[in-house]
């Protein structure tokens, strides 16, 4: 029995009158890659952002590594150290060089000494194929390069869960591949990953399970084979007909 890393129980989120998440249940086990697909506005990103409490859930529970993230006794900052997140807009720190972007959290949070952190940054840059960009500033990089740095920055805290919020949606088409390749390698290395994406090819090829969301509920969950090969729900069929 694999360990459960992330568990959402009847997770709800409303913005005022708008119920964006209407009770989501999902378990993600260690090493699993789960892709969330669905039309825009279906609540995928909101769901992802509730998992590390960038959005405050309005109901239900999120349990990460056994800690209830809404519990007053859990230290959300400590929990977040263990959950890396990659954003659609990269959100690199523009006033810091690539190396400094990657070093910042380990030096600030884990009290890693600067030389060790810089060395670690170099290793991570190698992993994402950007060894030559260590001293560059974010503004000097292409979108694809920035996103790979963002992945390296998230990995610097050695999280064992990674959240990806539409990581390729802001990229020019020719740069999508380089980012997906890094993510695919990460999946192969056994990282637990939850990926909100519109890249159906990636979802099909890399994920262990695919979650189809629509209107704030999980409509269907299954292996890529099941979801893309023979979807059961009409809403899933309609969606896939539109995007494939």
């Amino acid at each position: 029995m694999a360990t459960v890393k992330v568990e959402a129980k009847n997770l709800q989120k409303s913005f005022g009158m708008l119920d964006v998440l209407q009770g989501i249940d999902l378990e993600v086990t260690e090493g699993e890659v789960v892709c969330m697909i669905g039309p825009s506005g279906s609540g995928k990103s909101t769901f992802l952002r509730c998992l590390n409490r960038l959005e405050e859930p309005t109901g239900g529970q999120v349990i990460v590594d056994g800690f209830d993230i809404m519990d007053k006794k859990s230290d959300i900052n400590k929990i977040r150290e263990n959950i890396g997140m990659v954003f659609q807009q990269f959100n690199l720190f523009p006033h810091l060089s690539v190396t400094e972007n990657i070093m910042m959290a380990p030096v600030d949070r884990k009290k890693m000494d600067k030389a060790a952190a810089a060395q670690k940054a170099q290793q991570l840059l190698k992993k994402v194929g950007l060894s030559d960009k260590a001293d560059a500033y974010p503004a000097q990089l292409s979108g694809g390069q920035q996103q790979r740095v963002a992945i390296a920055r998230a990995l610097a805290m050695e999280p064992d869960i990674m959240l990806f919020d539409e990581p390729t949606s802001a990229l020019d088409p020719e740069m999508v591949g380089e980012v997906l390749a890094v993510m695919q390698q990460l999946a192969k290395d056994g990282m637990t990953m939850i990926v909100v994406t519109h890249e159906m090819g990636f979802a099909r090829e890399v994920s262990d399970r695919v979650v189809f969301m629509d209107g704030g509920v999980v409509v269907e969950v299954g292996t890529p084979e099941e979801i893309f090969g023979h979807p059961r729900e009409q809403r899933t069929i309609d969606f896939l007909n539109k995007v494939l």
């Binding site: 960038l54 400590k78 890396g84 954003f87 959100n91 720190f93 006033h95 910042m104 805290m157």
Partner: peptide, 25 residues
């Protein structure tokens, strides 16, 4: 706003995120 979110997602508390990421910019 994404700058604050990125800093917080790395585990920085609000005050540290302010000091290291938001204020310098």
């Amino acid at each position: 706003i994404g700058q604050m979110e990125a800093a917080r997602s790395l585990g920085l508390p609000y005050g540290r995120a302010m000091r290291k990421v938001i204020l310098p910019q």
